[in-house]
């Protein structure tokens, strides 16, 4: 049993942590029932539309790449589903390029792919996205550095303190051993989705399953 599953702030192999990791000890805050960290973060000003979960249908044409379905459940530590949780995802396109002004990777943009989606979990805590498999991409952390293919996930629980931003990886990626971000956590296996033939849709898309576990309510 790992007591703290999260990465440390300072992880020098990931160079950007060196000037951004806090150097002082965190101050333990006792969260009484009135603590603001325990309120339910409201995001009702943004309504989730029907197609927000399908990243392949946001433009006039179909994006290039391998179409995939990524689904799983958002659970708490006790295995209870987190219902009506907002799940936001973002990712690079099939060529490993983000639709972002500051991404300088000389790989093509895809006019049919922005790489952003969101959905609300259902009664079982399940989310489901249709997208394309993102490509690996280079970064300047160290010589010949490449990030393994991943999808960024942002999840809200029912208390602000459950807030989680993380990344999902694809099984069998040879870049795992070279990635200091994935390697910053005690057990990276929990960040890797499982290929699932039952989720795979014939003649259409490969399926992956990945469950997300939030800390229990405080």
């Amino acid at each position: 049993m790992i007591s703290d599953p999260h990465p440390p702030y300072l992880h020098p192999p990931y160079a950007s942590t060196v000037l951004r990791a806090p150097s002082q000890h965190l101050v333990a805050a006792k969260l009484d029932p009135e603590a603001v960290e325990l309120v339910d973060p409201v995001y009702g000003h943004q309504t989730v539309a029907d197609l927000d979960h399908d990243l392949t249908r946001r433009h006039g044409g179909e994006p290039l790449g391998e179409r995939i379905i990524v689904t799983g459940r958002v659970l708490d530590e006790d295995g209870r589903p987190v219902r009506r949780a907002l799940v936001e995802v973002w990712q690079a396109n099939a060529a490993g390029r983000y639709s972002h002004d500051l991404d300088r990777h000389p790989a093509p943009l895809d006019p049919n792919f922005t790489g952003f989606g969101r959905c609300l979990t259902d009664d079982e805590g399940r989310y489901r996205f249709v997208t394309i498999k993102p490509g690996a991409y280079p970064w300047r952390n160290h010589p010949n550095a490449w990030r393994p293919a991943h999808i960024h996930f942002s999840v809200f629980g029912t208390q602000f303190v459950q807030r989680l931003v993380t990344q999902m990886y694809f099984p069998g990626d040879p870049l795992f051993a070279h990635d200091p971000i994935m390697g910053s956590v005690p057990d990276p296996s929990s960040l890797i989705a499982a290929f699932d033939l039952a989720t795979t849709e014939p003649e259409w898309a490969l399926g992956y399953q990945w469950d997300i576990v939030l800390r229990r309510e405080a």
């Binding site: 006790d78 295995g79 942002s154 057990d187 576990v213």
Partner: peptide
């Protein structure tokens, strides 16, 4: 029961 999913940078 499960261990919470680890955090990763927002990038």
């Amino acid at each position: 029961a499960g261990t919470p999913t680890p955090s990763q940078t927002v990038g």
